[in-house]
């Protein structure tokens, strides 16, 4: 099921999530747990960092590669210590003067100097406060019952004075939706590094898990993919949120003998 073009993202998230939960119940599956995450949270966090735009894009692009994004953060925070001083125009001109015998090879002197200055300015900005870099890595590691996890994130963000209130409020609204549906919030696990390993997701992601006779199975999953319609050729942005129900697994989970303590 998909909900396309609804501008109120919160309402869209709530509707799809509600449908998924109700669908399971209609099928007779009462015992399930949830895994949730939100790519927009990491996106907004990275957008707030004082880094060159291509570096922000790089961090977001590599969110999916567990370990790699942490190593990028470590390099940014601890790489070579203090921020670099940008070269002045005079220094850059002197560097070019030292290469007076080399051909300009199709570019103008001014072109080379201008880009050298841009690059120097970028290198100077290529540094993250090590406290911030470490806090982000720590944040990405947070995983646990949703309410506790969100409290941890709030506390961590406070230490580095970064405000992600709108994103956190959106997550709390989703938890409120689940609560109003009678879902036990201790069965909802929030994982900061959770992106369902599909690069088209852009925001809220969720999976519903149950047990069949062999063990835990994902019976439904989905999320928000606001940039997909444009990638497929739409001329204007089209908000998109959707979910798939895995009917075969649902039936298998329903047929499985009840476990004491329920699904994990």
């Amino acid at each position: 099921m998909e909900l396309l073009g609804l501008s109120d993202a919160r309402a869209g998230d709530a509707e799809i999530l509600t449908l998924a939960v109700e669908a399971l119940r209609v099928c007779g599956l009462k015992d399930f747990s949830l895994r949730i995450g939100d790519l927009a949270l990491f996106g907004a966090l990275v957008d707030g960092l004082s880094l060159p735009p291509q570096w922000r894009a790089r961090l977001k692009r590599h969110f999916w590669r567990a370990g790699y994004v942490e190593s990028l953060l470590h390099w940014l925070g601890h790489g070579d210590g203090a921020p670099k001083r940008p070269n002045s125009r005079a220094e850059i001109e002197a560097l070019l003067q030292a290469q007076a015998d080399a051909p300009l090879a199709g570019r103008t002197r001014e072109e080379i100097i201008a880009r050298a200055m841009d690059r120097a300015a970028e290198a100077a900005n290529l540094h993250l406060d090590s406290k911030i870099a470490d806090a982000i890595a720590e944040l990405l590691d947070i995983s646990g019952p949703a309410e506790e996890a969100l409290a941890k994130i709030r506390a961590l963000l406070k230490t580095i004075s970064i405000n992600l209130d709108p994103q956190l409020a959106a997550m709390e609204a989703r938890l409120a939706t689940l609560k109003s549906l009678g879902v036990d919030l201790s069965r909802v696990q929030f994982t900061a590094h959770f992106g369902r390993n599909m690069e088209y997701y852009t925001g809220f992601v969720f999976e519903l898990w149950a047990r069949d006779k062999e063990g835990p199975v994902q019976v439904a999953g989905g999320g928000r993919y606001d940039s997909m319609m444009e990638m497929l050729g739409a001329k204007t942005p089209v908000s998109a949120v959707g979910c798939a129900l895995r009917t075969e697994r649902l039936l298998a989970a329903k047929a499985a003998p009840k476990m004491v303590g329920g699904a994990k």
């Binding site: 850059i92 560097l95 070019l96 290469q99 007076a100 015998d101 080399a102 051909p103 300009l104 090879a105 199709g106 570019r107 072109e111 080379i112 880009r115 050298a116 841009d118 690059r119």
Partner: peptide, 22 residues
């Protein structure tokens, strides 16, 4: 290899930028 006068180019990523700008 590129001209030594291209003091702003030392990696393939730099060359990518310069190709696009050029």
């Amino acid at each position: 290899a590129v001209s030594g006068a291209w003091i702003d180019v030392s990696t393939m990523a730099d060359l990518d930028d310069v190709c696009a700008a050029y």
